[in-house]
Design a binder for these strands. Structure first.
Length: 566
RNA sequence: GGGCUCGUGGCUUAGCUUGGAUAAAGCACCGGCCUUCUAAGCCGGGGAUCGCGGGUUCGAAUCCCGCCGAGUCCGCCA
């Protein structure tokens, strides 16, 4: 409902500016609306007009307000006040009623036309997901959820890097080292990878074997392909299990080798040879592309004629582009240069350029993460520990619940806390992972929000048991400050979805979720629902139901489950 | 050496794109609130020269320049 309010304020303001004969169209900042602690919505337009018309902004603001007329009917605004240079707008009762009504009836904004393909996680199938991948996966998944809510048709891809050297090493290793039994597949693969990598490092003759495997795989050798598939699928099954546990699903797993087999990589290389500024290295056989505005040439083919990931990535992106309107890639900071090169090369090929969401690194106090060196904390280990921790908390608080119930709540709270902590921080902040902090779920994160939801459910449950109805509720009875503040907060859900999706900033949703829970808790404290008189109780029950809906929707956008009790 | 990102109370962060109302939260610390719907909650308190220096502006955490510190990338790994 906040979006509608914004539109109406814009219109009213525009009319006032015209009446007062201000040329607002030239203003760069537009009407400069903002959320404000001093008003329900405010405009700073007087500042920029003040400059253009050489008047103090306070005078301009007062002048605009004098010309401002709020339509008598069907308006959402009650009044507008000039507060110094600011123009403050306040909502009326109708806005509050309409907000509740919309939420209760489940009215959503119109669908958008664009189809978006978003790629995230895309961890190499050489071991389990670690906490670095976790950040990618969670940022990516929240983006997917936000974009879907915003009305886009979204397809999610996991790009499987099955042709790189590390997979060659794993396949080579799997021929010599037995997989540890009764260990999760991706973890068993990591053991092989780490051991095989050490062997290859110590004996360069082994490297030749690996390279030979890679050439055979690229050439489509049947026996080698079987071996690759077995290993990669095994690892992927483990990775997928971890992702599922985190409530993350991909629509498609796209293997990079497909593009080699289908000849798409060959096509891309040929086309670049024609359209691009091609160079050869000093040995005369590796293929380089000179890109405008980037110092480093992009290497797309090895000296031995095999393709590089860059060429395969180009083929993959061209294929993706043809299937949608927008391509979004969630990449780690280490891929930034590569992503720029990719974008330039795609331009040469006449393919639309992807949008990149780049997130900074997660490192350990002891240094950066590395699967190869065995220096990582797996997502599985973290999930295990955080669920155990959550279980302790549940067990402390709810001895009355049976074991299954406690486990279920612990799972929701643990995974929720993990997801929330990862998504709440802006992607361009470097994170040094600390186990103690990660397990400290006392903080005002997911559990705080889930708890508010559980409280709402608990009231609704009791109301139903006692047969209280919400029919013919009278929204004007909701006069308490905490009631109105909660409704206003509820009204911002779609506004936040819009903002987070258009700016590709998932952490905005996390911030909103916390504020929403805070508003609900204030209301909960201030306003008894079940013990209120019948009419007031009806209205408050409706408010509780709406709060429950928006809390659970917000949590859903964050990919966090909303327990009915905890 | 060059590119990109970050640097906000003791700790973790929001705000920076688009400059504007006393810099906003959480953790930790101090004090208060369970005979009314779950205290994973609520209320109050102390604590910040927004890394440092300069510039632009009526106005800078926000824009520009320089410096310092952290991370990351810089042709045949992905």
């Amino acid at each position: 409902m906040f979006l509608e309010l914004e539109k109406e304020v814009e219109q009213v303001l525009r009319e006032a500016l015209e009446k007062a004969s201000y040329e607002y169209k030239e203003l760069e900042a537009g009407l400069d609306l903002e959320e404000s602690e001093h008003a329900d919505i405010a405009s700073r337009v007087a500042f920029s007009l003040a400059r253009a018309y050489k008047q103090p902004p306070e005078i301009v603001a007062a002048d605009i307000v004098n010309h401002l007329e709020i339509p008598a009917e069907h308006t959402l605004i009650s009044n507008a006040v000039a507060a110094g240079p600011y123009i403050n707008f306040y909502v009326n009762e109708f806005f509050l009623h309409k907000t509740l009504q919309r939420i209760k009836e489940g009215i959503e904004p119109a669908k958008k036309k664009d189809k978006i393909i978003i790629e995230h996680t895309s961890a190499n199938p050489d071991g389990p997901l670690h906490i670095g991948h976790l950040r990618n996966a969670i940022i990516g998944d929240v983006l997917v959820r936000v974009l879907k809510r915003a009305g886009y048709d979204v397809e999610t891809h996991f790009y499987v890097n099955d042709m790189g050297k590390q997979i060659g090493i794993v396949v080579w290793g799997a021929e010599r080292i037995a997989l540890t039994e009764n260990k999760k597949a991706d973890h068993a693969i990591a053991d092989v990878y780490i051991a095989a990598n050490r062997m290859v490092e110590e004996n360069s003759a082994f490297l030749k074997d690996v390279e030979s495997l890679m050439r055979k795989y690229e050439a489509g050798d049947e026996v080698v392909t079987k071996k690759y598939e077995t290993v990669v699928k095994k690892c992927l099954s483990g990775i997928q299990a971890s992702l599922n546990r985190l409530n993350i699903l991909h629509d498609l797993f796209v293997w990079e080798s497909e593009f080699v087999r289908e000849g798409a990589v060959e096509e891309v290389i040929e086309e670049l040879k024609q359209k691009g500024n091609i160079k050869f290295d000093s040995s005369g056989s590796a293929l380089l592309v000179q890109l405008e505005g980037i110092d480093k040439e992009l290497v797309i083919q090895r000296t031995d004629g095999t393709s590089l990931y860059t060429a395969r990535d180009l083929a993959y992106h061209r294929w993706k582009s043809n299937r949608c309107d927008r391509v979004i890639d969630v990449f780690g900071k280490d891929h930034e240069l590569v992503s720029q090169q990719l974008a330039k090369a795609l331009q040469i090929l006449g393919v639309k350029v992807p949008e990149f969401v780049i997130f900074e690194f997660v490192s350990l106090p002891t240094g950066s993460l590395s699967t190869r060196a065995g220096r990582y904390i797996s997502a599985d280990e973290l999930m295990e520990k955080i669920e155990a921790r959550a279980y302790n908390e549940v067990n402390k608080r709810r001895r009355d619940l049976n074991e299954d119930k406690k486990r279920e709540i612990a799972r929701k709270v643990g995974i929720g806390a993990l997801r929330y902590d990862m998504v709440k921080v802006s992607p361009d902040k470097h994170i040094v992972f600390d186990f103690k902090d990660a397990l400290d779920i006392e903080k005002k994160g997911a559990p705080f929000i889930q708890y508010s939801h559980a409280r709402a459910c608990s009231i609704l449950r009791a109301a139903e048991e006692q047969g209280f109805s919400m029919e013919d509720y009278e929204p004007t009875l909701l006069k308490e400050n905490s009631e109105k503040e909660l409704i206003k907060k509820l009204s911002k859900f779609w506004y936040i979805v819009e903002e987070a999706s258009s700016e590709l900033k998932p952490h905005l949703v996390a911030k909103y979720a916390r504020e929403l829970a805070e508003s609900f808790n204030l209301f909960y404290k201030d306003c008894p629902v079940l013990n209120a008189n019948e009419e007031l109780r009806k209205a408050r029950l409706v408010l509780v139901e709406c709060a429950k809906i928006v809390l659970s929707d917000t949590l859903d956008v964050l990919g966090i489950e909303a327990p009915e009790e905890m």
